[in-house]
Design a protein around this nucleic acid. Sequence first.
DNA 1: TAGTGGTCTAGACCACCAG
DNA 2: TGGTGGTCTAGACCACTAG
Lengths: 254, 254
Amino acid sequence: MGTTQLETVPEPKYWHLKTVLSEALDSDFAVGEILPNERELASRFGVARATLRQALEQLELEGRLQRRRGVGTTVAPPRVGVDVGASQHGWPGAAGDAWQPVDCASAVPPVAVVRMLDFDAEDEVHVVRRLRVTNGQPVAAELLYVPDASVPDLAAIEAPSGAARARSVLRELQRLVMDGQDRAVELGSARADDAKELDRLPGAPVLVVTTRYFAEGRTAAVSVATYRADTCRLTFGDSGDVEISHHGQERRAS
Amino acid sequence: MGTTQLETVPEPKYWHLKTVLSEALDSDFAVGEILPNERELASRFGVARATLRQALEQLELEGRLQRRRGVGTTVAPPRVGVDVGASQHGWPGAAGDAWQPVDCASAVPPVAVVRMLDFDAEDEVHVVRRLRVTNGQPVAAELLYVPDASVPDLAAIEAPSGAARARSVLRELQRLVMDGQDRAVELGSARADDAKELDRLPGAPVLVVTTRYFAEGRTAAVSVATYRADTCRLTFGDSGDVEISHHGQERRAS
DNA sequence: TAGTGGTCTAGACCACCAG
DNA sequence: TGGTGGTCTAGACCACTAG
């Protein structure tokens, strides 16, 4: 028995590769630095490009790498903490929230949203599109579904669509007294339109935050926000301004 | 110009495949039903197996499919809502929480955890392993890091490891007065040990919930819980007992 | 032991970006 | 226009599960 290691559990190559690359990132690379291209890396490690890519995909999923077609693979900065908790107690669009209204239209919401609203028919609702930007980078895209019943005094005269309309809907929403809200987080993949807003390819992993707003005994609005899973860490409570990362120093904003 | 469709944006095959399969799942399959195997599906759609797999991977990521080696691909049930919010206000291990202690050991925590604890040195802490089970299925695995300073009266005489030791640490923790807690959610991939507990392959996508518990002006404990991203929807607030899915009926538990 | 999904290869072509 | 990552192919072998 000259073997020093049991070979009973042969580790997949891409898994081992991921470990090696991860350690190399810690020691030999700085944030923003460009890695050798995939063909070069693959031949350097003696594996097929597809295998190398499998390792890179995992590292990108974990927020360690950022890959852009036509450019290259770079070392990603630590994930940014995005507050989706206590400080958001209030209607969407309240003063100082992190979202920027982009557009508004009327449409029949998807089935899942219809179920959350107290809706029987396939009526149209106001659909407000908003974008959340942090440090100049888009981190989330939201669709906010508002039944007409929640904004009865919305003047039909105003712009029927566009950012101005979006602001009108949000303004009218503020007049309701909120009973409470509800949040859920799950993993999803970016739809084509969200992907475009988030500067990612369709299918990119996203954290989907679904919020129900209650008022007057009903569900007054439903928000479906998709956050870039590669760059974001969703925070609840008062940890929003603390940066936690495997590779940086902890910093508390002043 | 006999073309009825603009070809300016050639959709990737796997993306189109995903759409087709998704619609087929809605109309032609029941939860738990077994799909044809990958080679069969690939030839049926006239694509390479790798391309077909790319589509299946996305659908699995979205919780629509479940794949098990040696068995096959089945239609997944709707994601289960797992409460990680208000009802969890209290120390881990408090009466009636959803976790089941499995083991306990002493070890030096990873760097990221050391930073969250108010630790300078590389001292050992108690590491409690717990498992969260819902409907008989494991949904999350947790590592709870407790510095010795948080449980000063822990008798060294008791079992030095195992589930009994875990319960002792949790019991001692209850004696502290909690100042508050902190939560963050991010995407990760399952480590080998977590994957085993969750009955998944290493690298499977997980939602990592990091919780800091504060007491006596310090960080008294840190919990790192990894939830199966394919089967779980994390809920905050009072929506924990409501099932929301694309394909089922909304139900409110009595 | 037969059949499943998981891993891996060595190519090819395409879409995109910067110089 | 050259170089990058993204998509796709047609194979091969392996690890695991169930009968």
